[in-house]
Design a protein around this nucleic acid. Structure first.
Lengths: 339, 339
DNA sequence: TTGTACGCGTTATCAA
DNA sequence: TTGATAACGCGTACAA
């Protein structure tokens, strides 16, 4: 009650009648201390409510057991899920995870990098590979291990993720096999978001290769939100000739599109087909269920933790770990209408 | 390339040909330094890629500009959304947010408290008010300002949140007004989750007060997941006499219940009514739309940031800030079947 | 097994 | 306006 200052090692030492070194040892390598002493020290720790000061500890020991993650936004369930398992794996290894979000802004991402590194992060998890060279140079110069996740990257750097383009291509092949000739797409904003860009690319290339229609693809890009999916779908349905299938870069967009179709009195998949990407929870719940690409986020989080930990420990690490995806067929993809 | 160690203040000072004190001043109070010197120093900072060490800085200045938040899980969108705005408000005030999750485990929450405090957190955001007295005592002794969010709390402590019980009661009154006599509920796990408990309580008390049925309420508690909502709904529909309405403690459970109803060939709301709580995105997308309680998470995050900041600055603060909720009527609540 | 004493990188005080 | 230098809290050789 009367004590309002944080207790220090010194306070504990005095209370227990030992030296600060002994208290420190009790906390860090207890078996070097005789049980009687240890108990006395631990009692003092308890009664004072002592918690070691992170700053002092980091300063003296030169390590922090902290890793940082910078994600675009906490509001996207797919990051939340992957991060959760990332954190669980880290916790098992005795590390603490610090999370920051960039709001899809490279400048802000850079700020967060500095904040995390100045807090002593031993390693960093970043999303994707699209970022200014200066940010990467900064990381490199500082010698901070980092990995990109949620997709695969270029020739250098370490990545654990999905081949977004290949998965989109495979789904597109299935769409074409159903007989669709007029394909349109609603994608995420591809600028500085390589996942969104790769998904669009996969669809586009497959269509071009198959020589469907004129080989081009109509794409509307929009931030991930139900309403944007609905609006874009409405716009696409205005065009003539109407697409027979709308492929979406993300399930959120797809569900919005699906809702809009219902509002417009269009039956899915009889009048128009819709596909998604990610397989979020909601995709199994809508009616009809969404045909989409399943992306195992939890496994990716675990794999990312393992890779980053190995990098931090300077063990050998594969440069790329690919997490396989799978197409989940539910009800929103069918053959094109006969018309 | 050849430099792999983190540059220190000393390195910068040497490179710029000044003392460490001057470098420190350049970074913290630039106008105390003559422009010519400042520029020379800043160039050295740039070219070395210097970032101040957080530990050293915290040690010397005795403040961290860091606040911590401990949430049950990152996978619940309602926390993610509130946290996002909490963080935005904090960032404006020059603070950095560190997020940790407890997995609904009080012991783990306590560990995270220590981790955050040892990292110098100036204040803590916690969810709800249900936690062991020892955890609270620990916080109090350390003199760390903290607030509970997402609900309101007891006589002491600071809270910003919703009156979960009152909102549930109001919704129940509406249900009763529609003519329902047989009400059942699917709630979250109420143990150590005061939000879930309060929602159940609000429903139960209203039913008892109205003398509906025998005044008791059948409740199944389950973790928030679609499948659990579906399973619990199935179990409830087995009972006889069947409830005419199933009130859910959360929209996730409600959507699961809705899906199960469809599977069972039950029309909503003609055969059975369903209500939710939270108004997550999906609730407007399902068919029919979910009648639920809207909880403005973003506003809560902002209000929480303001309150915590004031507490940290030792300004005067109201003990409780209540964020109003509203009932959103969509399609899942109707009158009971005539039968 | 325990204690002494130094150094980690920074800020802040006091002189110059 | 700038420079020495003493804290800050902790870990760890080294000595006892």
């Amino acid at each position: 009650m009367s004590e309002f200052a944080r207790p220090t090692l010194d306070d504990v030492a005095r209370a227990a009648g030992v030296s600060t070194a002994t208290v420190s040892r009790c906390l860090n390598s207890p078996n070097q201390v005789i049980p009687a002493t240890r108990q006395r020290v631990m009692e003092a720790v308890q009664s004072l409510g002592y918690t070691p000061d992170f700053g002092g500890r980091a300063l003296a020991s030169r390590r922090t057991n902290t890793v940082g993650a910078i994600i675009p936004t906490m509001e996207n369930a797919i990051f939340a899920r992957g991060l959760q398992s990332f954190q669980e794996a880290l916790t098992k290894a005795g590390k603490t995870l610090l999370v920051a979000s960039s709001g899809y802004d490279p400048a802000r991402e850079r700020e967060q990098m500095e904040a995390l590194i100045s807090r002593g992060a031993d390693g960093l998890l970043l999303i994707g590979s699209a970022r200014p060279e200066a940010s990467i140079e900064y990381l490199r110069r500082r010698g901070v291990p980092y990995i990109g996740a949620w997709n695969l990257g270029g020739p250098d750097g370490y990545f654990v993720g999905f081949d977004n383009a290949a998965a989109a291509a495979k789904l597109t092949e299935m769409v074409i096999a159903k007989g669709h000739q007029r394909i349109a797409m609603i994608g995420g904003i591809s600028d500085m978001n390589d996942r969104a860009a790769a998904r669009i690319l996969g669809v586009r290339q497959t269509i071009a290769a198959a020589g469907i229609g004129d080989g081009s693809l109509r794409v509307i890009e929009a931030p991930y939100a139900f309403q944007n999916g609905a609006d874009a779908f409405g716009a696409l349905m205005e065009t003539s000739p109407r697409p027979t299938v709308v492929m979406c870069g993300n399930d959120v967009l797809a569900v919005g599109a699906l809702q809009k179709a219902r509002e417009m009195g269009l039956r899915v998949p009889q009048d128009v087909s819709i596909t998604g990407f990610d397989d979020i929870d909601i995709s199994a719940v809508v009616d009809p269920g969404l045909t989409t690409v399943r992306v195992p986020h939890r496994r990716m989080g675990e794999a990312a933790a393992e890779m980053l930990l190995r990098l931090i420990n300077k063990e050998t690490v594969e440069r790329q770990v690919e997490i396989p995806t799978a197409i989940i067929e539910r009800g929103t993809l069918g053959p094109p209408p006969a018309a």
